[in-house]
C-alpha cells in the first residue's frame, strides 16, 4: 500500500528521508508531481509531504536573504522585501502559471523539478543563489548552478532535503529584470527566459553583470561569455552585439511544437537587448533622482 507522510518538522522529514531515502518522493505543492503521476511518468510508493513544515516557509532578510524552500510563488510575489531586494525573482515568480499554481507551487519545488523551462532559476542564478541542503547526518550549501546538473536532474543526494535558498540582494546601484517570451499574456511555458542583473557605475560603466537563461538548453545556465562581453563596457552597441552573439552561441535550444530552435535563438538575442535597455533606463532614472 502507498504511504503519505506529512512531516510537521524538519527533523521528522529528515528522519523519514534517512529511513527511506530515494524510495520516498518529496512533495511540496505537488503541482508538477501530481501531473507526472497521473500521466504515469512516476509511480511513487511513498510521499514525504513537507508543505506543513513551518520552518521551511518564509523569507528572512538579514545580511543575506534566505527563502524557505516551501515558500510559495505567491508569497514571493507579495513580499515587500523581495520586491525591493530581489525584483527579478519576484517578476519571475509572478509568471509561474496562474494564481492557483502560484499559491500551491513553491520555490524549492520549482528548483528540484529542474525543468529546463523553470522560470525562477535564471533570476536565482543571476542573484548567485546558493541552496542549503540538510540530511539527518549533515548539512551543506551548494551553488545553484552546481545543484542543477541537467534536464530534470539535480545533485541532491539521497536523504537530503532542500531547506532554503540563499540569494544576494540587489546592490544599491544595480538593476535587474526577468524577460519571459511566450505568445499569450500569461500562463506560458517560457519559450525563452532571460534574467539580467547589472551594476552600472555613475560613469556608465558596467561594474558587475549576471546573465542567465532558461528554455534555451537542457538546463538553465549563466551565460559567462556574454557577461564578459559587456563587463567594463558602457553598453555601447558593439559590446551588446558581442554579448548577444556569445549568448546565442552558448544556447542550445530545442526544436519542439512550442517553438523552433531558430526562433528561440533569435528571440534570445532580442530579449538580451531589451533587458539591457530596461536596466539602463532604470539606471538613468536612479541617477536622475
Amino acid at each position: 500500500m502507498k504511504e503519505f507522510v506529512s512531516a510537521q518538522s524538519i527533523d521528522e522529514a529528515l528522519d523519514t528521508l534517512s529511513r527511506f531515502g530515494d524510495d520516498c518522493l518529496i512533495m511540496a505543492g505537488g503541482t508538477d508531481i501530481m501531473i507526472q503521476q497521473r500521466t504515469g511518468d512516476i509511480d511513487p510508493r511513498r510521499y514525504l509531504h513537507i508543505e506543513r513544515i513551518e520552518s521551511l516557509k518564509g523569507i528572512l532578510v538579514d545580511e543575506k536573504i534566505l527563502i524557505g524552500s516551501t515558500t510559495s510563488h505567491h508569497s514571493i510575489v507579495s513580499s515587500k522585501n523581495l520586491q525591493r531586494l530581489c525584483p527579478g525573482l519576484v517578476s519571475a515568480s509572478a509568471t509561474v502559471g496562474g494564481w492557483q499554481t502560484q499559491e500551491a507551487g513553491t520555490l524549492g519545488g520549482n528548483i528540484c523539478n529542474a525543468s529546463p523551462a523553470a522560470d525562477t532559476i535564471p533570476s536565482l542564478l543571476a542573484a548567485n543563489a546558493l541552496v542549503h541542503l540538510k540530511s539527518s547526518s549533515a548539512e551543506r550549501t551548494v551553488r545553484l548552478d552546481e545543484f542543477i546538473v541537467g534536464r530534470r536532474m539535480t545533485s541532491r543526494l539521497e536523504g537530503e532535503l532542500l531547506v532554503a535558498i540563499e540569494v544576494e540582494a540587489l546592490p544599491a546601484n544595480a538593476s535587474e529584470v526577468y524577460i519571459k517570451v511566450g505568445p499569450r499574456s500569461a500562463m506560458e511555458v517560457a519559450l525563452v527566459g532571460l534574467a539580467v542583473r547589472i551594476s552600472i557605475s555613475p560613469l556608465g560603466i558596467v561594474e558587475n553583470v549576471a546573465i542567465a537563461t532558461c528554455s534555451v538548453g537542457p538546463k538553465p545556465f549563466r551565460a559567462i561569455a556574454a557577461e564578459t562581453a559587456i563587463l567594463g563596457s558602457q553598453l555601447e552597441d558593439e559590446a551588446v552585439m558581442n554579448a548577444v552573439s556569445e549568448l546565442t552561441q552558448e544556447a542550445s535550444p530545442m526544436d519542439d511544437f512550442r517553438a523552433s530552435a531558430r526562433y528561440r535563438k533569435q528571440v534570445l538575442g532580442s530579449a538580451l537587448v531589451n533587458a539591457l535597455n530596461i536596466c539602463q533606463l532604470q539606471h538613468k532614472l536612479r541617477e536622475q533622482s
Partner: peptide
C-alpha cells in the same frame, strides 16, 4: 485558490 486536480488529497 488552488487547482484541486493537481492537489494531493492527503496534502
Amino acid at each position: 485558490p488552488i487547482d484541486s486536480c493537481i492537489m494531493a488529497a492527503h496534502a
